[in-house]
């Protein structure tokens, strides 16, 4: 994505008149965008968002500790969910690839079911149903279990697509050599598939990390929840905007770092000779949308 391709399907190579026109539009567009940004900053200034009082909380060590704890809680939930979702995905994928209908149909049903239910509702199920029956489960686990089931189902699809994408010739040759299905899968297909799947898996983990932000709805003290609490302090002028700016910066940095790792993995896989499998695209872009 470095420079623009020389010709693209929609636009021809710009001649001198087109270049001038493009430059004019470019300048115009830049000015418009700058004007918008300036307006936003000005309005923020006018309503006192940059007032020292609103940012004061963020300088207090106690509040910074709150934010840090929120960040750690986010990472904790994300880490646990990731650790559980991966094995769940593997098992579900194995079920979907099985030759036995008894295994395949339930596995398919489970995967489709958990991808159809909104993640928020899944989390609600885990949090509120035990309350109906007299016990309670910590908000962390309600969040983690919801994330695990949803992202596990998506990962199952990724794993399945990865195994399927390894060139048929590989498995045919393995069968011709007399290997059994188990050996074929573990010795031939999996090693190649894993390399192909890695970037997509990491992208899905980014989605998982973003989805921890739903925890605030069940009062799990993750980063957004902590931000809401800090922003809700009347005495400091309800500093929602400054706090959210900091929270947004934290999320964007975290996720950018993860996405970069994914990109780097993707580039290295493409150059590798050890696998014939193409990098698996996100099975359905919709799942990369995350949010719920």
């Amino acid at each position: 994505m470095g420079g623009q391709p020389v010709t693209s399907v929609l636009y021809d190579m710009p001649g001198p008149r087109a270049r001038r026109r493009n430059r004019a539009i470019s300048v115009g567009a830049s000015l418009l965008i700058l004007a918008l940004v300036a307006y936003v900053l000005w309005r923020f200034e006018a309503t006192g968002q940059f007032e020292a009082l609103r940012w004061k909380q963020l300088t207090l060590p106690a509040v910074q500790r709150e934010l840090r704890d929120g960040l750690l809680a986010t990472l904790k939930a994300g880490g646990l969910a990731a650790a559980l979702a991966l094995p769940f995905g593997v098992i579900a994928a194995a079920g979907r690839l099985s030759d036995h209908r008894l295994l395949r149909w339930p596995a398919t049903a489970i995967v489709e079911l958990f991808r159809a239910i909104p993640l928020l509702i899944l989390i609600f199920f885990f949090y509120y149903v035990p309350l109906d029956y007299g016990t309670s489960i910590p908000t962390l686990w309600a969040l983690v279990l919801g994330l695990t089931l949803y992202n596990g189902a998506v990962l199952a699809e990724i794993f399945r697509a990865g195994i399927v994408s390894v060139a048929k010739g590989q498995s045919e040759a393995a069968y011709a050599l007399g290997m059994r299905k188990g050996q074929v899968t573990t010795l031939i297909l999996l090693p190649q598939a894993v390399r192909a799947m890695l970037p997509t898996i990491v992208s899905q983990l980014v989605v998982l990390l973003k989805d921890t932000a739903l925890g605030f709805i069940i009062t799990y003290p993750e980063l957004l929840y902590v931000g809401k609490q800090i922003g809700g302090r009347a005495v400091y002028g309800f500093p929602y905007i400054p706090t959210y700016l900091v929270v947004a910066a934290a999320y964007i940095s975290m996720n950018t770092v993860l996405s970069l790792a994914a990109n780097r993995l993707e580039r290295r896989t493409r150059r590798s000779f050890k696998t014939t499998a193409d990098v698996v695209p996100p099975p359905q872009t919709g799942d990369a949308v995350g949010g719920v």
């Binding site: 973003k210 957004l224 929602y240 999320y251 950018t256 949010g291």
Partner: peptide
């Protein structure tokens, strides 16, 4: 790279300003 909930939060609490 931003959670949807944060986009919501900005719109609901930022745009009134």
């Amino acid at each position: 790279n931003t959670p949807l909930t944060l986009v919501f939060a900005f719109l609901i609490f930022g745009t009134p300003k």
